[in-house]
Design a protein around this nucleic acid. Sequence first.
DNA 1: TCTTGACCTTCCAGTCACGGGAACCCTTAT
DNA 2: ATAAGGGTTCCCGTGACTGGAAGGTCAAGA
Lengths: 131, 131
Amino acid sequence: MNISQASKATGLPAKTIRYYEEIGLIQPMRSTNGYRTFTDTSLHQLNFLARARALGFSIDHCRSLLALWEDRDRASADVRRIALKHLNEIEKKISDLTEMRDTLGELVRTCDGDGRPDCPILNSLSATSFS
Amino acid sequence: MNISQASKATGLPAKTIRYYEEIGLIQPMRSTNGYRTFTDTSLHQLNFLARARALGFSIDHCRSLLALWEDRDRASADVRRIALKHLNEIEKKISDLTEMRDTLGELVRTCDGDGRPDCPILNSLSATSFS
DNA sequence: TCTTGACCTTCCAGTCACGGGAACCCTTAT
DNA sequence: ATAAGGGTTCCCGTGACTGGAAGGTCAAGA
């Protein structure tokens, strides 16, 4: 299977697959003409990576998870620790974004949004002190 | 006022202030020795930028907002449109992250996290089909 | 056989919003 | 005279790709 087939099969762009090889996440075979050849193993790895990335895991976390996945003697505690760390990061982001949304939402709500120049959004951004 | 004073006054790192000048967001004066000199105007702009960035606006949005702020004939509708667009992006991010959190939270919850290799997190990542 | 078009390859540059660090200049105090 | 503590520019690195150029390979059709 060539790279475009692998791309279709996994939903990952060919560029991304080449990148994953470049940084050592996967090591697909090569055929005599130099083309990458994707076997079931490579495809499983790519699918694994696609799912882990979809859950927001960083490439570094993906690398660790992939290693654990391929280690039959792993401890699930190691996996759980990585996932928990990531979960905390996600929750921090949600919290930050929620605060932004609330502040900004309130500003947008109080802005008339007409042709006049008076604007609570700008007033807030130029305020001398935050509330 | 030199850059380190401006940095303290605004909370922005000196590096960031230089960067903002480099990309044309601000144009601080220069004294004869080549040092940047920050007046009230520059400080107001920097504070404005710091607040807009804290609300998650991109540099490009900040540029537009700053221009509108300095335009006494602006229409608040223009400001509101930018803020609303940004608000939608934030809500999209929150939505994506919340989905990640729910999925990942459920996986973490069902993972024993002990010394044994069996792990629902890895099982899910290697699953042939998503639920 | 030649050509066309669809593949594939590598390599380089750009993204966003800075941060680190080198090499060097200016000012003030000792 | 020197040392400390400012300031300056310039270049490289970040994460996780994406776009594009230049060129090799392959299968099908005229």
